[in-house]
Write a protein that binds this DNA or RNA. Structure first.
Lengths: 167, 167
DNA sequence: ACCATGAGTTTATTTTCTGGACTAACTATG
DNA sequence: CATAGTTAGTCCAGAAAATAAACTCATGGT
């Protein structure tokens, strides 16, 4: 299967992964949320070849996650900024950060702390239910086919349930 | 830069991305949370070559995200199950699903619905503050160096703030 | 004139992925 | 007993994609 075959699937994971499912794209997004905006800065911080930096920025721009904004005219120079769609990736990026903090932080603790301005405290992101506001655990969720499910009669029927790991 | 150079970085994103930052790994995880457990099932659902299916499952197992559990002895057969560490990826997977549902669902709506057993309703995941329980927006967060920050005096200083997209 | 900066392209090499065949250890069927 | 089927892989050669390093282009400074 190819890259773009993914975006043709009905699955929301597949479609999202077709956009952000790549090491460098995810690293670029991390930097975006840290305030990095210019090509040379991404380039320097990522430590990868310019080709890839350029390609990933272009891809994210084409997908409407980033937009180019001119910050000078002569010579024309642009910076990359998150669009509203891009800002919607914040929970995803924070979920990645949080997993890393939990499982890969050294004894010293996490490399970055996040302060919630509204309440003034450092926090961890907690995924909660939009309906009852309680934290959600994987086994408390039942998944079933939704309205956008059918159309082609092949693949992607959810096999049965989640119930995983009896450790 | 190479795959494994990433896991050597101090950044939590980099370390997590070194484990899950790959299209197929993410698709494998999606299936895990949908209850898929056997090699042949992953293989059939993903539609990729067996080599890669095998390699990704092995990688996730090595990383402690999945574990092999025997479900019969003669011949010995195993299934792949999420470990506790693997279950910690649920918010990440749901964040991906949610982004896809928001931005790539057709007019019909999302392909899958998720019901929170505790409250009995379909929900969307909402990222909230572990401290004040309020939903978190990217611009309401201030990031600064944490305890696990220093050690090598190069890269990864958070540039300044988040404040992105003035749309 | 010469060097520096910012934002990329071009080219050649390296790595990864595919598709198919093959192995292995059994079980079921005729 | 011979043959076919199931499950979980491995091996290999060619095709496709990712990557590093060098180069381009426009302009500004001295």
């Amino acid at each position: 299967m190819k890259w773009d075959a993914l975006s043709a699937e009905r699955c929301s994971v597949a479609r999202t992964v077709a956009v952000i499912g790549d090491r460098w794209t995810l690293m670029v997004l991390r930097d975006c949320f840290l305030g990095v905006r210019r090509f040379e800065d991404f380039q320097a911080r990522l430590g990868i070849s310019r080709t890839i930096t350029a390609e990933r920025l272009k891809h994210l721009t084409d997908e409407g996650v980033l937009k180019k904004v001119a910050y000078q005219d002569r010579p024309p120079r642009f910076e990359y900024r998150l669009t509203d769609k891009g800002l919607d990736l914040y929970p995803l990026v924070m979920a990645i950060v949080n997993f890393g903090d939990r499982h890969y932080a050294g004894e010293a603790g996490p490399p970055l702390l996040h302060r919630h301005k509204a309440c003034g405290h450092d926090f961890e992101p907690v995924m909660t239910c939009s309906c009852c506001q309680e934290p959600i655990k994987a086994r408390e969720v039942e998944t079933r086919a939704g309205p956008g499910s059918s159309s082609h009669p092949h693949d992607s029927t959810p096999p049965h349930a989640v119930e995983s790991a009896g450790s």
